[in-house]
Design a protein around this nucleic acid. Structure first.
Lengths: 156, 156
DNA sequence: TGGGATATCATGGGAATTCATGGGCGTCAA
DNA sequence: TTGACGCCCATGAATTCCCATGATATCCCA
Protein backbone atom coordinates (compact mmCIF):
# COMPACT_ATOMS: atom_id res chain seq x y z
CA UNK A 1 0.00 0.00 0.00
CA UNK A 2 1.33 3.41 -0.95
CA UNK A 3 1.67 5.71 2.06
CA UNK A 4 2.27 9.41 1.44
CA UNK A 5 3.51 11.73 4.18
CA UNK A 6 5.63 14.82 4.58
CA UNK A 7 5.57 18.18 2.80
CA UNK A 8 7.68 18.95 -0.26
CA UNK A 9 7.90 22.20 -2.26
CA UNK A 10 8.79 21.71 -5.94
CA UNK A 11 9.37 24.09 -8.85
CA UNK A 12 7.24 24.20 -11.95
CA UNK A 13 9.58 24.79 -14.89
CA UNK A 14 8.97 26.72 -18.11
CA UNK A 15 7.50 23.68 -19.80
CA UNK A 16 5.01 23.16 -17.01
CA UNK A 17 6.84 20.18 -15.61
CA UNK A 18 7.11 19.28 -11.90
CA UNK A 19 9.26 16.68 -10.19
CA UNK A 20 7.28 14.17 -8.17
CA UNK A 21 9.03 14.24 -4.78
CA UNK A 22 11.39 11.28 -4.47
CA UNK A 23 9.60 10.06 -1.34
CA UNK A 24 6.29 9.97 -3.21
CA UNK A 25 7.89 8.24 -6.17
CA UNK A 26 9.06 5.52 -3.85
CA UNK A 27 5.58 5.26 -2.34
CA UNK A 28 4.07 4.93 -5.81
CA UNK A 29 6.54 2.22 -6.69
CA UNK A 30 5.42 0.27 -3.63
CA UNK A 31 2.21 -0.71 -5.39
CA UNK A 32 3.97 -1.84 -8.54
CA UNK A 33 2.49 0.75 -10.87
CA UNK A 34 4.58 3.95 -10.68
CA UNK A 35 1.92 6.08 -12.34
CA UNK A 36 -0.24 8.49 -10.37
CA UNK A 37 -3.74 9.88 -10.71
CA UNK A 38 -4.75 13.52 -10.12
CA UNK A 39 -8.10 15.16 -9.52
CA UNK A 40 -9.31 18.68 -8.72
CA UNK A 41 -10.75 18.77 -5.21
CA UNK A 42 -14.28 20.10 -5.02
CA UNK A 43 -14.65 23.33 -3.06
CA UNK A 44 -11.00 24.04 -2.33
CA UNK A 45 -8.05 25.24 -4.43
CA UNK A 46 -6.20 21.98 -4.20
CA UNK A 47 -5.41 18.95 -6.35
CA UNK A 48 -5.69 15.49 -4.91
CA UNK A 49 -3.51 12.62 -6.04
CA UNK A 50 -3.31 8.90 -5.45
CA UNK A 51 -1.91 5.76 -6.97
CA UNK A 52 -3.67 3.46 -9.38
CA UNK A 53 -4.44 0.89 -6.70
CA UNK A 54 -6.46 3.46 -4.78
CA UNK A 55 -8.66 4.13 -7.80
CA UNK A 56 -9.06 0.42 -8.33
CA UNK A 57 -10.24 -0.05 -4.74
CA UNK A 58 -12.75 2.72 -5.21
CA UNK A 59 -14.06 1.19 -8.40
CA UNK A 60 -14.26 -2.26 -6.85
CA UNK A 61 -16.35 -0.96 -4.00
CA UNK A 62 -18.55 1.06 -6.33
CA UNK A 63 -19.29 -2.09 -8.29
CA UNK A 64 -19.83 -4.33 -5.26
CA UNK A 65 -23.55 -4.56 -4.51
CA UNK A 66 -24.35 -3.13 -1.10
CA UNK A 67 -20.86 -1.77 -0.45
CA UNK A 68 -22.00 1.85 -0.53
CA UNK A 69 -25.13 3.95 -0.75
CA UNK A 70 -26.57 4.78 -4.12
CA UNK A 71 -25.74 8.45 -3.63
CA UNK A 72 -22.15 7.68 -2.70
CA UNK A 73 -21.84 5.40 -5.69
CA UNK A 74 -23.02 8.20 -7.93
CA UNK A 75 -20.43 10.52 -6.40
CA UNK A 76 -17.66 8.04 -7.03
CA UNK A 77 -18.64 7.60 -10.66
CA UNK A 78 -18.80 11.35 -11.13
CA UNK A 79 -15.36 11.82 -9.65
CA UNK A 80 -13.90 9.13 -11.89
CA UNK A 81 -14.68 11.35 -14.86
CA UNK A 82 -12.46 14.12 -13.50
CA UNK A 83 -9.39 12.04 -12.95
CA UNK A 84 -6.23 12.49 -14.96
CA UNK A 85 -3.56 9.85 -15.26
CA UNK A 86 0.03 11.03 -14.95
CA UNK A 87 2.99 9.36 -16.52
CA UNK A 88 6.37 10.31 -15.12
CA UNK A 89 9.30 11.00 -17.41
CA UNK A 90 12.65 9.25 -16.87
CA UNK A 91 13.63 11.94 -14.36
CA UNK A 92 10.47 11.44 -12.30
CA UNK A 93 8.65 14.54 -13.57
CA UNK A 94 5.22 15.04 -15.06
CA UNK A 95 3.50 17.82 -16.96
CA UNK A 96 1.10 19.51 -14.57
CA UNK A 97 -2.12 19.75 -16.64
CA UNK A 98 -2.96 23.44 -16.99
CA UNK A 99 -6.60 22.97 -16.00
CA UNK A 100 -5.53 21.43 -12.71
CA UNK A 101 -2.85 24.03 -12.21
CA UNK A 102 -5.47 26.70 -12.63
CA UNK A 103 -7.78 25.03 -10.14
CA UNK A 104 -5.08 25.02 -7.47
CA UNK A 105 -3.78 28.46 -8.44
CA UNK A 106 -0.27 27.03 -8.67
CA UNK A 107 2.27 29.32 -10.32
CA UNK A 108 5.96 28.53 -10.08
CA UNK A 109 5.95 26.43 -6.93
CA UNK A 110 3.83 23.39 -6.11
CA UNK A 111 3.63 22.10 -2.56
CA UNK A 112 3.07 18.36 -2.23
CA UNK A 113 1.51 17.25 1.06
CA UNK A 114 1.17 13.60 2.10
CA UNK A 115 -2.17 12.53 3.56
CA UNK A 116 -1.76 8.78 3.86
CA UNK A 117 -3.25 6.94 0.93
CA UNK A 118 -3.55 10.18 -1.02
CA UNK A 119 -1.56 13.37 -1.40
CA UNK A 120 -2.40 16.98 -2.20
CA UNK A 121 -0.85 19.68 -4.38
CA UNK A 122 -1.16 23.30 -3.22
CA UNK A 123 -0.08 26.83 -3.91
CA UNK A 124 2.35 27.56 -1.05
CA UNK A 125 0.44 30.44 0.54
CA UNK A 126 -2.96 28.79 0.15
CA UNK A 127 -1.61 25.67 1.80
CA UNK A 128 -0.27 27.62 4.74
CA UNK A 129 -3.60 29.35 5.18
CA UNK A 130 -5.61 26.15 4.93
CA UNK A 131 -3.35 24.37 7.39
CA UNK A 132 -3.64 27.16 9.94
CA UNK A 133 -7.40 27.22 9.61
CA UNK A 134 -7.72 23.45 10.00
CA UNK A 135 -5.53 23.56 13.07
CA UNK A 136 -7.60 26.23 14.74
CA UNK A 137 -10.79 24.41 13.80
CA UNK A 138 -9.53 21.32 15.57
CA UNK A 139 -9.59 23.26 18.80
CA UNK A 140 -6.02 23.50 19.96
CA UNK A 141 -5.79 19.91 21.05
CA UNK A 142 -2.16 18.89 21.18
CA UNK A 143 -1.21 16.72 18.26
CA UNK A 144 1.19 13.93 19.09
CA UNK A 145 1.78 10.44 17.82
CA UNK A 146 1.08 8.80 21.13
CA UNK A 147 -2.13 10.74 21.59
CA UNK A 148 -3.43 10.01 18.12
CA UNK A 149 -2.84 6.34 18.59
CA UNK A 150 -4.67 5.97 21.89
CA UNK A 151 -7.95 4.16 21.68
CA UNK A 152 -11.14 5.17 23.41
CA UNK A 153 -11.33 8.58 21.84
CA UNK A 154 -11.28 7.51 18.25
CA UNK A 155 -14.79 6.18 18.01
CA UNK A 156 -17.22 8.51 16.26
CA UNK B 1 6.15 -4.69 16.84
CA UNK B 2 8.91 -2.22 17.59
CA UNK B 3 9.29 -1.50 21.32
CA UNK B 4 11.42 1.47 22.37
CA UNK B 5 12.68 1.95 25.93
CA UNK B 6 15.64 3.40 27.74
CA UNK B 7 17.38 6.78 27.50
CA UNK B 8 20.36 7.40 25.26
CA UNK B 9 22.35 10.61 24.75
CA UNK B 10 23.97 10.93 21.32
CA UNK B 11 26.20 13.53 19.69
CA UNK B 12 25.18 15.60 16.69
CA UNK B 13 28.24 15.88 14.45
CA UNK B 14 29.34 18.76 12.23
CA UNK B 15 27.25 17.48 9.35
CA UNK B 16 24.15 17.34 11.51
CA UNK B 17 24.20 13.59 11.76
CA UNK B 18 23.14 11.55 14.80
CA UNK B 19 23.54 7.86 15.52
CA UNK B 20 20.27 6.09 16.15
CA UNK B 21 20.90 4.28 19.47
CA UNK B 22 21.73 0.64 18.79
CA UNK B 23 18.82 -0.53 20.93
CA UNK B 24 16.41 1.55 18.85
CA UNK B 25 17.96 0.29 15.63
CA UNK B 26 17.28 -3.25 16.72
CA UNK B 27 13.71 -2.30 17.57
CA UNK B 28 13.25 -0.75 14.14
CA UNK B 29 14.63 -3.85 12.46
CA UNK B 30 12.01 -5.92 14.24
CA UNK B 31 9.33 -4.61 11.87
CA UNK B 32 11.33 -5.37 8.73
CA UNK B 33 11.72 -1.79 7.52
CA UNK B 34 14.71 -0.21 9.30
CA UNK B 35 13.64 3.33 8.42
CA UNK B 36 12.10 5.65 11.00
CA UNK B 37 9.68 8.56 10.90
CA UNK B 38 10.02 11.80 12.87
CA UNK B 39 7.52 14.51 13.73
CA UNK B 40 7.59 17.74 15.74
CA UNK B 41 5.35 17.35 18.76
CA UNK B 42 2.71 20.03 19.08
CA UNK B 43 3.12 22.29 22.11
CA UNK B 44 6.40 20.94 23.48
CA UNK B 45 10.05 21.22 22.42
CA UNK B 46 10.36 17.57 21.52
CA UNK B 47 10.48 15.39 18.43
CA UNK B 48 8.49 12.19 18.29
CA UNK B 49 9.60 9.17 16.31
CA UNK B 50 8.20 5.81 15.30
CA UNK B 51 8.71 3.09 12.76
CA UNK B 52 7.03 2.88 9.38
CA UNK B 53 4.61 0.20 10.52
CA UNK B 54 3.22 2.59 13.12
CA UNK B 55 2.44 5.16 10.45
CA UNK B 56 0.91 2.52 8.25
CA UNK B 57 -1.38 1.40 11.08
CA UNK B 58 -2.46 4.97 11.61
CA UNK B 59 -3.16 5.43 7.90
CA UNK B 60 -5.07 2.18 7.65
CA UNK B 61 -7.33 3.20 10.51
CA UNK B 62 -7.79 6.68 9.09
CA UNK B 63 -8.96 5.18 5.82
CA UNK B 64 -11.25 2.57 7.34
CA UNK B 65 -14.84 3.82 7.34
CA UNK B 66 -16.09 4.29 10.88
CA UNK B 67 -12.77 3.52 12.57
CA UNK B 68 -12.40 7.00 14.06
CA UNK B 69 -14.27 10.25 14.47
CA UNK B 70 -14.13 12.79 11.69
CA UNK B 71 -12.17 15.22 13.90
CA UNK B 72 -9.63 12.59 14.86
CA UNK B 73 -9.25 11.60 11.24
CA UNK B 74 -8.59 15.21 10.32
CA UNK B 75 -5.93 15.39 13.03
CA UNK B 76 -4.21 12.30 11.73
CA UNK B 77 -4.16 13.57 8.16
CA UNK B 78 -2.82 16.93 9.31
CA UNK B 79 -0.05 15.30 11.27
CA UNK B 80 0.94 13.14 8.29
CA UNK B 81 1.94 16.31 6.48
CA UNK B 82 4.47 17.11 9.20
CA UNK B 83 6.22 13.77 9.21
CA UNK B 84 9.72 13.28 7.90
CA UNK B 85 11.13 9.96 6.81
CA UNK B 86 14.59 9.06 8.02
CA UNK B 87 16.88 6.71 6.23
CA UNK B 88 19.76 5.43 8.27
CA UNK B 89 23.21 5.26 6.70
CA UNK B 90 25.23 2.03 6.87
CA UNK B 91 26.54 3.11 10.27
CA UNK B 92 23.04 3.59 11.65
CA UNK B 93 23.04 7.39 11.53
CA UNK B 94 20.64 9.92 10.04
CA UNK B 95 20.77 13.63 9.31
CA UNK B 96 18.67 15.41 11.89
CA UNK B 97 16.53 17.78 9.76
CA UNK B 98 17.33 21.32 10.84
CA UNK B 99 13.67 22.32 11.16
CA UNK B 100 13.10 19.52 13.64
CA UNK B 101 16.33 20.26 15.43
CA UNK B 102 15.16 23.81 15.85
CA UNK B 103 11.79 22.71 17.19
CA UNK B 104 13.43 20.60 19.90
CA UNK B 105 16.19 23.16 20.54
CA UNK B 106 18.77 20.41 20.11
CA UNK B 107 22.34 21.66 19.76
CA UNK B 108 25.22 19.21 20.01
CA UNK B 109 23.54 16.47 22.03
CA UNK B 110 20.26 14.70 21.37
CA UNK B 111 18.62 12.59 24.05
CA UNK B 112 16.58 9.65 22.80
CA UNK B 113 13.87 8.42 25.15
CA UNK B 114 11.89 5.24 24.55
CA UNK B 115 8.13 5.42 25.10
CA UNK B 116 6.97 2.02 23.87
CA UNK B 117 5.73 2.15 20.32
CA UNK B 118 7.24 5.61 19.85
CA UNK B 119 10.35 7.41 21.04
CA UNK B 120 11.23 11.03 21.71
CA UNK B 121 14.23 13.24 20.99
CA UNK B 122 15.05 16.02 23.47
CA UNK B 123 17.54 18.67 24.36
CA UNK B 124 19.22 17.24 27.49
CA UNK B 125 18.21 20.00 29.90
CA UNK B 126 14.69 20.32 28.55
CA UNK B 127 14.22 16.58 28.92
CA UNK B 128 15.39 16.65 32.52
CA UNK B 129 12.98 19.47 33.29
CA UNK B 130 10.05 17.80 31.58
CA UNK B 131 10.73 14.50 33.31
CA UNK B 132 10.86 16.14 36.73
CA UNK B 133 7.65 17.99 36.10
CA UNK B 134 5.81 14.90 34.91
CA UNK B 135 6.94 12.97 37.95
CA UNK B 136 5.72 15.62 40.34
CA UNK B 137 2.45 15.86 38.45
CA UNK B 138 1.92 12.15 39.04
CA UNK B 139 1.78 12.87 42.75
CA UNK B 140 4.78 11.04 44.09
CA UNK B 141 3.27 7.61 43.75
CA UNK B 142 5.95 4.96 43.86
CA UNK B 143 6.69 3.53 40.45
CA UNK B 144 7.59 -0.13 40.31
CA UNK B 145 7.05 -2.93 37.86
CA UNK B 146 5.05 -5.00 40.29
CA UNK B 147 2.86 -2.07 41.18
CA UNK B 148 2.32 -1.03 37.56
CA UNK B 149 1.32 -4.53 36.58
CA UNK B 150 -1.41 -4.91 39.16
CA UNK B 151 -4.91 -4.61 37.82
CA UNK B 152 -7.70 -2.62 39.32
CA UNK B 153 -6.09 0.77 39.01
CA UNK B 154 -5.62 0.89 35.28
CA UNK B 155 -9.23 1.43 34.32
CA UNK B 156 -10.17 5.04 33.57
C1' DT C 1 37.94 -16.23 37.17
C1' DG C 2 41.33 -13.46 35.04
C1' DG C 3 42.71 -11.24 31.06
C1' DG C 4 43.71 -10.88 26.39
C1' DA C 5 41.39 -11.27 21.77
C1' DT C 6 37.36 -9.89 19.25
C1' DA C 7 33.15 -7.68 18.07
C1' DT C 8 30.15 -3.67 18.39
C1' DC C 9 29.28 1.06 18.83
C1' DA C 10 29.65 5.96 18.31
C1' DT C 11 31.89 9.30 15.79
C1' DG C 12 34.72 11.79 12.02
C1' DG C 13 35.73 13.17 7.20
C1' DG C 14 36.23 12.54 2.03
C1' DA C 15 34.24 10.42 -2.20
C1' DA C 16 30.50 9.08 -5.00
C1' DT C 17 25.60 9.09 -6.00
C1' DT C 18 21.04 10.90 -6.17
C1' DC C 19 17.87 14.64 -6.68
C1' DA C 20 15.80 18.63 -8.52
C1' DT C 21 16.00 21.43 -12.28
C1' DG C 22 17.09 23.41 -16.91
C1' DG C 23 17.42 23.04 -21.79
C1' DG C 24 17.96 20.75 -26.55
C1' DC C 25 16.41 17.41 -30.04
C1' DG C 26 13.57 14.18 -32.44
C1' DT C 27 8.80 12.34 -33.27
C1' DC C 28 4.09 12.20 -34.15
C1' DA C 29 -0.17 14.33 -35.37
C1' DA C 30 -3.17 17.97 -36.86
C1' DT D 1 4.88 23.49 -40.60
C1' DT D 2 3.89 24.03 -35.93
C1' DG D 3 3.05 22.59 -31.63
C1' DA D 4 2.71 19.27 -28.02
C1' DC D 5 4.99 15.69 -26.07
C1' DG D 6 8.45 12.46 -24.68
C1' DC D 7 13.38 11.36 -24.44
C1' DC D 8 18.18 12.49 -23.64
C1' DC D 9 21.92 15.03 -21.62
C1' DA D 10 23.90 18.57 -18.41
C1' DT D 11 24.63 20.76 -13.83
C1' DG D 12 24.89 22.18 -9.04
C1' DA D 13 23.52 21.09 -4.63
C1' DA D 14 22.35 18.04 -1.26
C1' DT D 15 22.49 13.52 0.30
C1' DT D 16 24.30 9.01 1.01
C1' DC D 17 28.00 5.78 0.87
C1' DC D 18 32.51 4.23 2.18
C1' DC D 19 36.55 3.91 4.90
C1' DA D 20 38.92 5.06 9.30
C1' DT D 21 39.41 5.51 14.46
C1' DG D 22 39.01 5.10 19.38
C1' DA D 23 36.31 3.50 23.08
C1' DT D 24 33.37 0.02 25.14
C1' DA D 25 31.52 -4.02 25.70
C1' DT D 26 31.52 -8.98 24.81
C1' DC D 27 33.47 -13.36 24.12
C1' DC D 28 36.59 -17.13 24.87
C1' DC D 29 39.84 -20.04 26.81
C1' DA D 30 43.22 -21.46 29.90
Amino acid sequence: MAVFFGTHAMKVDGKGRVSMPAAFRDALHASGDPSAVLMPADGAPVIEGCDHAFVEDLVKRAYTPGAMSEARREQVLLVLGEMVKLSLDPEGRFVFPSALRGHAGVEDTAVFVGRGRIFEIWHPAKHEAARTETKSKLGGERLSLARLFTVGEDKP
